[in-house]
Amino acid sequence: MNVFRLVADLMHLASILILLLKIRKTRSAAGISFKSQLLYLIVFVTRYLDLFTHWVSLYNTAMKVFFIASSGYIVYQMQRRYRATWDPALDTFRIEFLLGGAAVMSLIFHTKFTFLELFWTYSIWLEAVAILPQLFQMSRTGEAETITAHYLFALGAYRGLYVVNWIYRYATEGYWEWIPFLAGMVQTVLYADFFYVYFSRVMRGKKFELP
């Protein structure tokens, strides 16, 4: 554990708490892409399949349980109590391509051809692009609530800081893996436009609006 990874995990934790707060406070999931939330649920379930077979630490297990449970809760609540508050007509990204593309990528690029390893790799590739339906929806509407922008910033910072963690680990431990590094870079590049607007507008107290 190093400071980059710790802050990354805390940002991830914060992002979900901010999202839950947004939904509760505004009593609405407006502006949130259901498809992205569904993809994150698939990401965490497929990545943490080793939850009961591979013990790392109490911290690791507690975080895994929280990420699976909270993403499941959000998907469930968006289909139930908050079903009428968001508009599926705005959430039109074709996630079949992301699900299929991540499957192809994990079949080509993986370290071992085993059940757990393939699902782990699938989750890594899928996570890289899981934000696309959300970004696509925002590019259509051209704006986002400030609290939603904070949620997305914390979520993007999580994977961005993991990339820094891997570079740091290579420098200090000689530890290196290409797959999570490349996937983290892809996600961070996809986020570039969002980060630019976030830093230039939201951090200065303005509304998140695309130019």
Binding site: D50, V56, K112, Y175, P180
Partner: peptide, 10 residues
Amino acid sequence: AVKGGAHDEL
């Protein structure tokens, strides 16, 4: 899956 590797991260 290397012990202490990316599989042990989140």
